[in-house]
Design a binder for these strands. Sequence first.
DNA 1: TATTGTTATACTCTATAACTATA
DNA 2: TATAGTTATAGAGTATAACAATA
Lengths: 147, 147
Amino acid sequence: MESDDTTGQLAELFLRAARRMRRNQADRLAPLGLTPAQSRALRVIARDEAPLRMVDLAARLEVVPRSVTTVVDALEAAGLVRRAADPANRRSTLIMLTPAGHAVRARLHEARRQAAEDLFAPLSARQREALRDLLAELDSSVSAGGL
Amino acid sequence: MESDDTTGQLAELFLRAARRMRRNQADRLAPLGLTPAQSRALRVIARDEAPLRMVDLAARLEVVPRSVTTVVDALEAAGLVRRAADPANRRSTLIMLTPAGHAVRARLHEARRQAAEDLFAPLSARQREALRDLLAELDSSVSAGGL
DNA sequence: TATTGTTATACTCTATAACTATA
DNA sequence: TATAGTTATAGAGTATAACAATA
């Protein structure tokens, strides 16, 4: 039925909102000299205690390993991460945050939080929590579901 | 407070879900020979009764006019739209769907609907409606709010 | 042979700047 | 001068293919 295509409406609304948030986020990251992809990679690197290999980082970013090379090159050139040979396996490269990388971490999170804040401002605190809960359920289902 | 950063969680969950949906959508559109941006433009063109000018299309897509040129070039090359001079103002170009453009329209919508269907499958019908309602409220607020 | 990372290359999406034609 | 569209160019994000080093 056309008039009750909840899923089709979701597609449109969801993608449009995401587009706005990505733009806002990019604008907020620009002053820090970082692109969204670089920021995302840095957040993933920072999340883990143990240093990640390039392949692991690619897997977490849901991206092909070659694509990570470019991003890490930029982060390394910016002095935010460094590459180190894995002593246990000489094929592998370990990525680690530098002190400068640690220092920008909080600002990256804040930039993204602010972008979300702007987007979701029209919703009440309760509505935001409802939205978060729905997305969290979705995310856990996907993670559990193998994809 | 760190442990109750609803907005920060929203940022992460929202962007991750959107990324998955965009990928899924791109995969479903590829067999039709269309990219997501081309598909989106064609849907906007198809939505209106009166033919759109390039500037209008750019405004609806929230994109700079120059970016529309490339997209319309591709759609025209694919035989899905055609450009026609505006008799009322010779500076303007009007974009119209061809019969072939009309013919693929339903398949574009279906590709996107399927992408959303895949993403939101873990949610119940009621949850999807709740999600849609939240996003719809967000969207109407933004539209009303001037941005 | 399989895995890890890289060089080389290409495509999509979008942007800014400068130019043309028209108003 | 202001508007509509374009040519020229660039940068971000990501992909495939081929290759070297290592396992």
